[in-house]
Design a binder for these strands. Sequence first.
DNA 1: TTATATACATAAGAAATAGATGTATATTTG
DNA 2: CAAATATACATCTATTTCTTATGTATATAA
Lengths: 120, 120
Amino acid sequence: MYICPMYSKELLKGTLKTIILKLLSENDRMYGYQITQKVKEITEGKINLTEGALYPALHKLEADGLLTTEKIEVGNRIRKYYTLTQSGNSSAKEKVEELVDFMETLKAIINISPQKLAWS
Amino acid sequence: MYICPMYSKELLKGTLKTIILKLLSENDRMYGYQITQKVKEITEGKINLTEGALYPALHKLEADGLLTTEKIEVGNRIRKYYTLTQSGNSSAKEKVEELVDFMETLKAIINISPQKLAWS
DNA sequence: TTATATACATAAGAAATAGATGTATATTTG
DNA sequence: CAAATATACATCTATTTCTTATGTATATAA
């Protein structure tokens, strides 16, 4: 899969798990590839998750008890569906709230006027 | 220095250089400690930069030619002032724009009401 | 038949940061 | 006056996170 991220990938750091949890909180269950496609669709191609980032993240969330999995055979292929656990659900809410709050704080830095920034 | 970041530090990853460049674009020159204090002030204590992150980032930006430095002796202490170069200035504009754009894209994913995050 | 899409995954290395530690002076407070 | 806190620089180790590359396999479209 060729990846062409619009943003310097740095910015995505730290937001991946929040994105995953948010998507799963709106969909009963999703599988990895579906998540990459959904993110691409929602962001109009601006964010493309790589497998090397996605799968370890999913495994970590599962190991932390936020997700459960079920394997479904579709044709001859296996799909691994991920579903939020109860604690995954509350964690999703927390992380999204935190992200919104963080973005509001970033706005404060980005929107400062020269006057406001004067050192005393 | 004891650090008590309000946000899971993960989120800050990738935004540090943009924050530094933005602050320097609004101030002719700043020194490291001043940057930490300014960020703390603007964000009402929500973001506290650690020295372990700040100084390597400043050194990297300098090595990349985006900043120049001058050492000023204040009393018996040395302050190292950082100033944007020309390319640092345009880089600041680019990175801030990119961050704004990225946050808009994130909004699409977390699907918050436009009013709440409205720019202006 | 060849490329692209679907679908999972790991492994090596880079990059960024936390947290601890170190050095030194200045100022405030009990 | 002694102790704590603030100012001011910096480095180092360990950890986390992600990129990039690679691997396996089937299905479909050109």
